[in-house]
Design a protein around this nucleic acid. Structure first.
Ligand code: ZN
Ligand code: ZN
Ligand code: ZN
Ligand code: ZN
Lengths: 132, 132
DNA sequence: TAAAATTTGTTATAATATAACACTATGTAA
DNA sequence: TTACATAGTGTTATATTATAACAAATTTTA
């Protein structure tokens, strides 16, 4: 049953929920949403989330403790992520910008540390919110 | 008493602690450390932290829920922050790189959103840990 | 001095995340 | 097929991080 798409039952349920959502979802929001499907306790949610993040299917928005589905197709291991976040409506949008990604992936720390991963979060007010 | 350096008593106590620390400090670690100075409850700590972040005296490392003193002198309101984080020893270092900062401050989202703030976290293994 | 704004102290509670353990399902290879 | 290793599940309890709400004191401004 598992190998079809390499997601386990709980992982698939939780991924589907996040993937359908237009906004970032929090762990306990997810928990309440999937209780009817038999997922009843926090560890079940967090374990699935951990795995999905690990494989790049979803990303964690660190400043919000919330999760979004990857929209970028080329971030298989969540090693180069960038997001735009509206401080008014909480909308989050994954930024897929090759130049930005290359610039940051090639960035070298003065102190000689070699980076293997980065996460960038931009904040502002989105177009839609500016109109209101 | 307050206006001398524009930090209140609790803010100063907590800033001093973070500023002396060589590693990021978590809110409850801070709480335990300052109980002898009369700060006894979480809200006292979080309020001081909020204010210190707001004024750019400290920054929050979002991926660690921990706080470091600003080492950059020119980030008065924490609006353009970048850090290097060692995944082995947990060391955090603020990156002050004018080019990087300018590049990101000038970055324009394809969808027309104007950014007023960003936070960037790089992850890797620091030099010291590589030797071990 | 009086009013406004900020800071403090305090109790309780909300929200986020993990430890630990027993068990089941799946993949691999003798 | 059997046996073993790996990954996933279900469950209870607990740890960690953060805020709400309210009363009092301090500082700033006018
Ligand atoms: Zn992605
Ligand atoms: Zn918005
Ligand atoms: Zn700084
Ligand atoms: Zn290190």
């Amino acid at each position: 049953m598992y190998k079809e798409n390499n997601l386990s039952k709980n992982q698939q349920i939780i991924f589907d929920l996040i993937n359908k959502s237009s906004e970032p979802l929090k762990a306990y929001t997810i928990l309440f949403s999937v209780q009817k499907k038999g997922i009843k306790a926090p560890p079940q949610v967090y374990r699935a989330l951990d795995k999905l993040v690990e494989t790049g299917k979803i990303h964690k928005i660190e400043s919000k403790n919330a999760f979004v589905a990857c929209r970028s197709s080329d971030c298989e291991i969540s090693k180069a992520t960038a997001f735009s976040i509206c401080e008014s409506c909480e909308m989050v949008d994954e930024i897929s910008d090759t130049k930005l990604s290359k610039y940051l992936s090639g960035f070298n720390h003065k102190k000689g540390m070699k980076f293997k991963r980065f996460n960038l979060e931009f904040f502002g007010i989105c177009k839609k919110c500016k109109k209101d």
